[in-house]
Structures are given as structure tokens and as C-alpha cells.
Computed example of a mutant assay.
Amino acid sequence: MNTVLLHCRGGFEKECAAEIVARSAEQGVFGYPQFEAGQAYVLFHCHAPGGAEELVTRLRFERLIFARQWCACLPLVSGLSKRDRITPLLEQCRQLPQAAELMVEVADTTEGRELQGFARKFGSALSQALRQEEILLPRKQKSDWRMHLFVIDGQTLWLGAAPARNSSPLPMGIRRLKFPHHAPSRSTLKLEEAWLHFLSAGRQKRLLAPGMTAVDLGAAPGGWTWQLVKHHMRVTAVDNGPMDEALMESGQVEHRQEDAFTFVPPKPVDWLVCDIVDKPARVTELMLRWALSGWCKQAMFNLKLPMKKRFDEVEHCLQHLEAALHEAGVEYRLRARQLYHDREEITCWLSLSEPGQ
């Protein structure tokens, strides 16, 4: 396997490509990216034989910000006959690490979504044939690898594999959430997805406990505050704009009509959340101020990205944040990802109570 296929948000192929080039070089795996604008995936072709398998095994997937999903692939399969697409694939699948699951994926584009019906049916038929040939392990048997089928069209596809514990468990890395009917804005889905993505079930139970305190900077109209209230927290919502009236009736929210960049909490809180529309460098400095002042234990915040040099801006902001915390002797855990419900932004989780790599 010499090619790594990485899913990303459409329009962020350039950032995904720049990131995998940088991260793979750190692992001593070298190659070159290939992509078209708007196709919602990137191909990274490794120079050395077996480089793709080596990369998806050695590089921690959670370190990637712009990639939603990845897998190491065999050469592109094209020209499949409509009469029998499956038989030619069986021998190729034998070349992949043995797995117990076949994940069927398409690009997150209009064209890709139109292929989903075909992809599901074809994937189901291929999976059945693979089990009959004992290429796929029995469903209940655990395996270190997952097999991937990425459908380009009815005659063209990629076959690959990814470590089950070093990739997304979700097809295309997409977590689809239902918009809560009573939430003030769709931005609420961004915080819900962030908690589900960054926090394990155990951490959610421990870190999202009833009675905790939180500050929401740039809160109006209250999409993120709504999530905090849902977890029975006491919230200080900081924004000069109006808050949702129904949300205020909960009795759990204090609205402070102040500048989020100058607000100082009267005492430390459990959670700081922030979805302010401002320059990423300025928001980074704000988060750093809260962290160094000891005003919160956990922070979930978004960095809105510029039109150009978005990967460079992300690298600069996160490296600056980490360097300043390290210099101050603050133990921390920092993770970042462009989530499905994000747009021109990335979401970051900074933990000052549960440090780690």
C-alpha cells in the first residue's frame, strides 16, 4: 500500500495536503499530495514501498486537524465491468491486512452523496462475498484493522485499510447530529459534536457533571449556552447582544453584557467555551490569558480561519499556545480538529485538569 487517502471538508484540500506532508515528514515518511479543489479528499502518494501502511500505523490520527478519516490504499481500481464488479476485487482484497469490517465511503460532495445508494448496495454485496471467501473475519471477531471501500463511481474505486484504533470509527469521519428543536441556533451542534469527539464516555460523565460552572464568551443568542444548560451547569453568558428568552427562563444563566475580551470571572469556573468571530491570533491570546490566570479547568473554543494560509495560521496559533503554556510550567492537554459541523474554523479542546499528550 503506497497511497494514503484522507477525507476532509470540501474546500480544505490544500490545508489537509499541507498537514499530511508536514506530519508524515516528522515520521520519516515522504511523498507528495494529489487533489482537486472541492473534491473533499486528498491522496498522499508515498515514495517508499509500504509507506502508506507505515504512516497510518505510526502517525497518531488524532494529531491531524483537517483530515476526518484516512486509510492506506492499494492502487486505484478502474474499468470495472457492470456485469461483475466483485470477482476482480476479491484477490486484491487478499492483499490487505485481515479485517472483520468493511467500511463503505464516498466523498462528502454532491456527487458523492448521489452515489451513496449504489455504494451501500455494492458494499453489502462485496462484504458478503469477502466473508464467503473468508477474506473478512466473522463479524464478532475483533481485528486490529478495518477494510475500506471508497467509491469514486460505478467503475472506479479505492480499496484500503486503516488501524481500527488509529482512525475514525465513523464512515468518512462524519458525525451527523440532529438539531435540537428548542436550541437558539444551529451553532449548538458544534459544541455537541466537540464533546462527543474529544471526550470519551468516561470523560463526559466526569467533566460534564450537573452543578458545574461555565462561562460562554460571545454567547448570543445562546447556541453553546444551551448545551451547557442541557448538562445542568450554571452559566455566565458574556455578550453585548441579546440572549434567547426561553433559555434565560431556565434560571441557570446570568447574562453579562460586557466585552468578551475584557471580561474577568469573579472566581474560576469548570468550563470556558468560546465561539467568537475574530482573528484566530486574538482568540488564541484570550484563551492563553484564561489558562495562565487559572480561570478555568477546561476550554472548548473555535478559531475562525482566514481566507489564505489557513494551515500556517493554525500551526502558528497552536504552537504559540503550547509554547507559552510550557514556558509557564502549566500541564495541559490540547487537541484540535475541523469537525463536521464546523465551517471556516477549527475546534480546540484545552484541558488544564487532565493533562496529557
Rank of each mutant, 00 (worst) to 15 (best):
P210N: 06
R234D: 13
T213P: 05
W224L: 00
V229R: 02
L207W: 15
D216K: 06
M212Y: 11
G202T: 10
V215T: 06
K205Y: 09
A219T: 05
G202W: 02
T225W: 05
T225I: 08
W224C: 04
A214C: 04
T225E: 07
A214I: 00
Q204P: 03
M233D: 01
V229W: 07
S200H: 03
H232G: 03
V215F: 10
Q227N: 14
G202K: 13
H231Q: 14
P221N: 04
H232T: 07
H232I: 00
A201Y: 04
K205R: 15
G211N: 07
D216T: 07
A219H: 07
M212N: 10
V229C: 04
L207D: 14
G202Y: 00
L207G: 10
R203E: 15
G211V: 01
A214G: 06
L217D: 11
R206E: 15
V229F: 02
L228K: 00
G202L: 00
Q204K: 12
K230S: 14
L228W: 06
G222D: 08
A220L: 10
A219M: 05
P210Q: 10
D216I: 12
G218N: 02
L207E: 15
V215G: 02
K205P: 01
G218D: 06
V229G: 01
W226Y: 15
K230Y: 13
A219S: 14
P221E: 10
P221T: 02
H231C: 02
L208F: 00
A209T: 13
T213R: 14
A209Q: 14
K230V: 10
L207V: 05
K205V: 01
A209R: 15
R203V: 05
A214D: 07
G222T: 01
G218K: 02
L207P: 08
G222W: 07
S200G: 09
G218M: 03
R203T: 01
M233F: 11
H232M: 11
H231T: 11
Q204I: 02
G223Q: 01
A201L: 13
S200N: 06
L208I: 10
G223C: 09
R234P: 00
T213C: 04
L228N: 06
L207M: 15
H231F: 10
G202C: 07
V215N: 07
S200F: 10
A209N: 05
K230M: 04
P221W: 03
T213Q: 13
W224M: 07
A201H: 12
G211P: 05
K230F: 12
R234C: 09
H231Y: 13
Q227M: 12
R206S: 15
P221M: 07
A214K: 00
Q227V: 14
G202M: 00
L207H: 13
T225V: 08
A209F: 10
M233S: 07
K230A: 15
P210W: 03
P210R: 12
A201W: 05
A220S: 13
T213K: 08
P210F: 07
A209W: 09
T213M: 04
W224S: 10
A220Y: 00
P221G: 08
V229E: 09
D216A: 03
D216E: 01
